[in-house]
Amino acid sequence: MTNLQKYENAFIETLGIEQNQTTNLEYQAIPEWDSIGHMSLITALEDVFDIMMDTDDIIDFSSFEKGKELLKKYDVQI
Protein backbone atom coordinates (compact mmCIF):
# COMPACT_ATOMS: atom_id res chain seq x y z
CA MET A 1 0.00 0.00 0.00
CA THR A 2 1.42 3.43 -0.92
CA ASN A 3 1.58 6.30 1.54
CA LEU A 4 -1.15 8.07 -0.43
CA GLN A 5 -3.44 5.06 -0.06
CA LYS A 6 -2.69 4.88 3.67
CA TYR A 7 -3.36 8.61 3.97
CA GLU A 8 -6.66 8.38 2.08
CA ASN A 9 -7.74 5.34 4.04
CA ALA A 10 -7.24 7.19 7.31
CA PHE A 11 -9.75 9.81 6.10
CA ILE A 12 -12.17 7.24 4.72
CA GLU A 13 -12.15 5.03 7.79
CA THR A 14 -12.11 7.63 10.56
CA LEU A 15 -14.51 10.10 8.96
CA GLY A 16 -16.68 7.45 7.32
CA ILE A 17 -16.59 9.10 3.88
CA GLU A 18 -16.14 7.93 0.27
CA GLN A 19 -12.83 8.13 -1.57
CA ASN A 20 -14.20 10.71 -4.03
CA GLN A 21 -14.90 13.06 -1.13
CA THR A 22 -11.28 13.37 -0.04
CA THR A 23 -10.05 15.54 -2.93
CA ASN A 24 -9.80 19.18 -1.85
CA LEU A 25 -11.59 18.31 1.37
CA GLU A 26 -11.27 21.01 4.04
CA TYR A 27 -11.64 20.87 7.80
CA GLN A 28 -15.24 21.49 8.89
CA ALA A 29 -16.48 21.47 5.27
CA ILE A 30 -18.47 18.32 6.04
CA PRO A 31 -20.18 17.33 9.31
CA GLU A 32 -17.95 14.26 9.67
CA TRP A 33 -14.76 16.35 9.81
CA ASP A 34 -15.61 18.35 12.90
CA SER A 35 -13.31 18.83 15.89
CA ILE A 36 -14.12 15.35 17.17
CA GLY A 37 -13.46 13.78 13.78
CA HIS A 38 -10.27 15.80 13.58
CA MET A 39 -8.76 14.27 16.71
CA SER A 40 -9.72 10.77 15.56
CA LEU A 41 -8.13 11.49 12.18
CA ILE A 42 -4.91 12.74 13.76
CA THR A 43 -4.60 9.70 16.02
CA ALA A 44 -5.24 7.42 13.04
CA LEU A 45 -2.53 9.17 10.99
CA GLU A 46 -0.12 8.97 13.91
CA ASP A 47 -0.72 5.23 14.09
CA VAL A 48 -0.48 4.60 10.36
CA PHE A 49 2.77 6.53 9.93
CA ASP A 50 4.16 5.88 13.42
CA ILE A 51 4.65 9.55 14.19
CA MET A 52 3.68 11.97 16.93
CA MET A 53 2.48 15.31 15.63
CA ASP A 54 3.13 18.64 17.32
CA THR A 55 0.12 20.53 18.61
CA ASP A 56 0.79 23.41 16.19
CA ASP A 57 0.66 21.01 13.25
CA ILE A 58 -2.60 19.49 14.48
CA ILE A 59 -4.06 22.99 14.54
CA ASP A 60 -2.63 23.81 11.08
CA PHE A 61 -4.00 20.58 9.56
CA SER A 62 -6.78 22.45 7.74
CA SER A 63 -7.32 20.35 4.63
CA PHE A 64 -6.56 17.07 2.87
CA GLU A 65 -3.84 18.83 0.84
CA LYS A 66 -2.38 20.77 3.79
CA GLY A 67 -2.05 17.52 5.70
CA LYS A 68 0.18 16.07 2.97
CA GLU A 69 2.45 19.08 3.26
CA LEU A 70 2.60 18.88 7.07
CA LEU A 71 3.45 15.19 7.06
CA LYS A 72 6.65 15.94 5.12
CA LYS A 73 7.99 17.39 8.39
CA TYR A 74 7.74 13.87 9.81
CA ASP A 75 9.53 12.32 6.82
CA VAL A 76 6.29 11.03 5.38
CA GLN A 77 6.21 11.65 1.62
CA ILE A 78 2.80 11.40 0.02
Binding site: M39, I42, T43, E46
Partner: peptide, 13 residues
Protein backbone atom coordinates in the same frame (compact mmCIF):
# COMPACT_ATOMS: atom_id res chain seq x y z
CA UNK B 1 -2.80 21.36 29.60
CA UNK B 2 -0.05 20.09 27.30
CA UNK B 3 0.16 16.72 29.05
CA UNK B 4 -3.63 16.32 28.84
CA UNK B 5 -3.43 16.99 25.09
CA UNK B 6 -0.75 14.36 24.52
CA UNK B 7 -2.35 11.76 26.77
CA UNK B 8 -5.81 12.23 25.34
CA UNK B 9 -4.55 11.26 21.89
CA UNK B 10 -3.59 7.84 23.24
CA UNK B 11 -6.85 7.56 25.14
CA UNK B 12 -9.08 8.66 22.23
CA UNK B 13 -7.51 5.84 20.23
Amino acid sequence: AELIQFASKFMIR
